[in-house]
Amino acid sequence: MLSPALLFTIILIIVVFLISLVVAMYSTYGERKVAAFMQDRLGPNRAGPFGILQPMADGVKMFMKEEIIPQDSNKWLFILGPSIAMLTACMASAVIPWGKGLTIDGQFYSLQITDVNIGILYIFGVVSIGVYGIMIGGWASNNKYSLLGALRASSQMISYEIAMGLSIIALVMMTGTLSVREITEQQAGGHWNALYQPLGFLIFLICAFAETNRTPFDLPECETELVGGYHTEYSSMKLGFYLFAEYINMFISSAVISTLYFGGYNMPFIERFVSDPNLVSIIGTLFFFGKIFFFIFFFMWIRWTIPRFRYDQLMNLGWKVLLPLSILNIFLTGIVMWLMGKVN
């Protein structure tokens, strides 16, 4: 018989996995509706009321399409590409604290799958291996457009990872911990890190857009130059997995942004109105999801507002603007901490 703690963790893993999938599914619907709203159209409205069943219809369509593996491609790597993309997209959710925790029968269960003491580095590691899905897929397709897309993706992700890591360093200096839960706990009562680290937050946000390959950084799949980018040769559900992984990544990066910079599951003033700790925790989780949905909307908002960069502009922004700015941010954080007497 499994111990209750282990059972709770297993249930939590399954629930988090399902939630990521459902949120990603409905992000595709949300994206079309947001795009339609911004362009003064109606958007999908045929499948079910308000087109609410559209993601199901898309899924069925994807599965029913003919599956083509190009003759001269590397078969195993061709299948491995989308698999890695999906795997790494789902892995990062393990260290995100989804809520404070529930007390059942006098025992406390944390709403975080695992609280490793290097949580931020774990997220960072998962993000950094996520690029292999695109690279392997693009190379195995044996297609010049795919290869160019893969090369663009890898150089873009490496360039922006550096600025992202440096912006996190300033945050870690301030909070003094690498554990995601401790960072969240320190922001209780409205002390959101975005207020103390505005520059770091801005750099992190821009890098998050680049890491998820969203517009204005969607050069790896830029259809006007590269047909479809790294997934030109993909069809059926393997293409679906690539597109789906992008939406899961968007969900996870929204969750990471809200956790690191916007207080995570902490809801200000909630303790004054509700006394039951379980209820506080559940309301906090709902508030957390509210922030996540806002950031997912923000991702879409940007996509349908700003055109994409040219490739040299992208590299200039990464190396000549964001990197020096994030180093400056580290210096400023250090000086302010020294002036406030937090370092001896």
Partner: peptide
Amino acid sequence: AQFLAAVHIIVYAGAIMVLFLYVIMM
């Protein structure tokens, strides 16, 4: 050695090998 493991993945698997792969694909 969790820290060492994480840094090992980030630096070697996440950065250096991506560049290796990049050059070999090119």
